[in-house]
Amino acid sequence: MYKIAVVGDYDSIYGFAALGLEIFPVADRKETEERLIALAESGYGIVYITEAAAAECEQIIGKFQERLLPAIIRIPGVFGNTGDGVQGVKDSVEQAVGSDILFSNN
């Protein structure tokens, strides 16, 4: 079984510890990139990352998107939400289903 990690600022991620997920607070871009690399090399299957933290290290995240694992999923945080997390989930569902499930013909 793969492990699940949550990366971002402490205020945004501390609640995930109550769900049994491992949290990794980060303070800056360098620390975030180092943490992502370490998690990928340690056998994590899913890494949730706050949108603000992901925005700082798009290049390293892009490298991981070419790999099967870990799946890096953007989530909203308490600071600096960009909508990328929701858009990423929407794009994934659209790709899996074959159409935009939120589109309506009203």
Rank of each mutant, 00 (worst) to 15 (best):
E66R: 10
E22W: 11
L39S: 07
E66F: 04
I60V: 07
K63S: 12
E31A: 13
G43W: 12
G45M: 11
R67P: 11
I60S: 03
E33F: 14
R35K: 09
A55S: 14
T50R: 00
I60T: 06
I49T: 05
S42E: 11
T32Q: 09
G20M: 15
F24T: 13
R29M: 12
G62Y: 01
I46K: 01
E56H: 08
G43P: 03
A54D: 10
Q65V: 15
A38R: 11
Q65I: 08
L39A: 12
G62V: 08
F64H: 04
I23S: 13
K63H: 14
A27R: 15
V47K: 09
I49K: 03
G45I: 05
R67Y: 09
L36S: 02
K30F: 09
C57Y: 12
C57S: 05
L39I: 06
A53W: 00
K30I: 12
R29V: 12
G43I: 13
I49R: 01
K63M: 13
I46L: 03
L39Y: 11
G62Q: 01
K63I: 11
E34Q: 14
I49F: 01
P25V: 09
A55F: 07
E41P: 06
A40H: 12
V26S: 06
E31D: 13
T32A: 02
E41D: 10
E58H: 12
T50S: 01
E22V: 15
E31K: 14
I23Y: 08
S42I: 06
D28E: 00
